[in-house]
Computed example of a mutant assay.
Amino acid sequence: MFSPEGPGLRELAVQALSSVERGYDLLAPKFDHTPFRTPDAVLDAVAAALTRMGPFGNGLDLCCGTGAGTVVPARVCRDSVTGVDFSAGMLAVARRRALPAGPRVHWVRADARALPFAPVFDLVVSFGAFGHFLPRELPGLFAQVRSVLRPGGRFAFPLVAPPRPGSPAYWALLGFDAVMRVRNAVWRPPFVMYYRTFRPSDVRRELTRAGFRVELHALPEFGRRRDGSPRVRLVVARRPAR
Results as ranks from 00 to 15, higher is better:
Phe2Glu: 04
Phe2Gln: 04
Ser3Asn: 05
Glu5Met: 12
Pro7Ile: 14
Val14Phe: 07
Gln15Trp: 09
Gly23Ile: 04
Ala28Thr: 14
Phe31Val: 02
Asp32Met: 12
Thr34Met: 03
Phe36His: 05
Ala41Trp: 13
Ala41Phe: 11
Val42Lys: 11
Asp44Cys: 14
Ala48Leu: 14
Gly54Met: 06
Phe56Pro: 03
Leu62Tyr: 00
Thr66Glu: 11
Ala68Arg: 07
Val71Pro: 12
Pro73Lys: 14
Cys77Trp: 13
Val81Gln: 01
Thr82Gly: 10
Gly89Tyr: 08
Leu91Asn: 12
Ala92Leu: 05
Ala94Arg: 03
Arg95Glu: 11
Arg97Asp: 01
Pro100Gln: 11
Ala110Cys: 11
Arg113Thr: 02
Ala114His: 09
Leu115Lys: 01
Leu115Glu: 00
Val124Gln: 10
Val125Arg: 08
Ala129Gly: 07
Phe133Val: 05
Leu134His: 08
Leu134Lys: 10
Gly140Thr: 07
Gly140Ile: 05
Leu141Thr: 13
Gln144Thr: 00
Arg146Ser: 05
Ser147Phe: 02
Leu159Gln: 13
Pro162Tyr: 08
Arg164Phe: 09
Ser167Pro: 04
Tyr170Thr: 08
Phe191Leu: 14
Val203Asp: 08
Glu206Tyr: 09
Phe212Leu: 11
Val214Pro: 06
Ala218Leu: 06
Pro220Ala: 10
Arg225Trp: 11
Pro230Gln: 01
Ala237Gly: 04
Arg239Ala: 15
Arg239Gln: 13
Arg242Met: 12
